[in-house]
Amino acid sequence: MENEELQQWIEQVSLDHFGVPFTHEALFNRRLTTTGGRYMLKSHRIEINPHQLEVYGREEVEKIIKHELCHYHLHIRGRGYQHRDPEFKALLQKVGGSRFCQSLPDGKGRKPLPYRYKLVCKSCGTEYLRKRKVDPKRYRCGRCAGKLLLREI
């Protein structure tokens, strides 16, 4: 699916479920990794994660589109458009949008945890994961105040 098709799809969903036209830009953004889509407040643009379409299909992406259109239409009208606002929750329920998108399987936009080091307490065995290398002589265990050993994972 191309951006032009997505634009038409979002315009149609807006008319069918909200009764108001979507008059701004919509496009796919491959850099989105942990979210299904996003609404840009300043430009009023909607971006959709194409990986969601590849993995879960049109039905799931339509729920994401409805979610982003809720943000769009409420923001344009000056109403409560944030996730915590009751107006947003009510409109999302009314149109049948999803509150959260499905998480993508590993390998599709997900990065492995970046921990490279582990501090292990000599006394109680408590482990502390670290991204950066640290000097274990400068630290003590938070549980028993024992000495720590540094290990690479």
Score class of each variant (00 low, 15 high):
Y56I: 05
L27G: 07
L74R: 08
K108R: 13
N3F: 15
K108L: 15
Y81E: 04
E68V: 07
F88S: 13
H73Y: 12
L15K: 14
L150H: 15
T35V: 10
I10Q: 00
R77K: 10
A26Q: 09
F100M: 10
E152T: 04
Y139P: 02
I64E: 05
Y39G: 00
F18M: 07
P50Q: 08
V13N: 08
F18Q: 07
S98N: 12
Q93T: 03
H17V: 00
H17I: 01
R116A: 14
N3P: 07
Q82N: 05
R143M: 14
R140T: 05
C141I: 06
L129I: 09
W9V: 15
C101R: 14
V95A: 06
Q82T: 07
P136C: 02
P21R: 08
C121S: 05
L53K: 02
E87W: 00
H24M: 04
Y56A: 08
S43N: 04
I48Y: 11
R132W: 00
L91P: 06
T34V: 02
E127M: 13
E25V: 06
N29G: 09
P136N: 08
P136I: 02
P136Y: 05
R110I: 11
L6E: 10
K63D: 06
R116M: 12
G142A: 11
K42G: 01
R99M: 12
H17S: 07
C141V: 08
Q7P: 06
E87T: 05
K94G: 08
L91A: 13
Y115V: 11
H83V: 00
T34P: 00
A90C: 04
L15H: 12
K118R: 14
L15C: 08
P50I: 08
Y39Q: 05
L91D: 09
V13M: 11
Y81S: 09
M40F: 13
I65T: 05
L41A: 04
N49H: 13
K111F: 03
R130L: 13
M1H: 04
A90T: 00
C101W: 08
T33V: 14
S98C: 15
Q12H: 11
C124I: 10
Y56E: 03
Y139M: 09
G97M: 13
L6F: 12
P86F: 11
E11K: 15
Y128E: 05
Q8V: 09
V134R: 01
I64C: 03
K147V: 15
D106C: 04
W9P: 07
K66F: 09
C101M: 08
H83N: 03
L129R: 06
N49F: 11
H44G: 01
E47P: 12
Q7G: 00
G37V: 07
P112G: 01
D135R: 00
V55Q: 06
K66V: 07
L32C: 07
R99K: 13
K118S: 00
M1Q: 03
S43H: 08
N49K: 14
P50D: 02
I153T: 01
K137S: 06
L113K: 03
L74M: 06
K89R: 14
L150E: 12
E87Q: 12
K137N: 08
C121M: 06
D106M: 14
G78K: 09
T33P: 01
L150G: 04
K111M: 04
V20E: 15
K94E: 14
R38T: 02
G96H: 12
H73M: 11
D106Q: 13
H67I: 11
G125D: 02
H75S: 04
R45Y: 12
N29W: 01
T34Q: 04
F100S: 15
I153L: 15
L91E: 09
V95Q: 02
I10E: 00
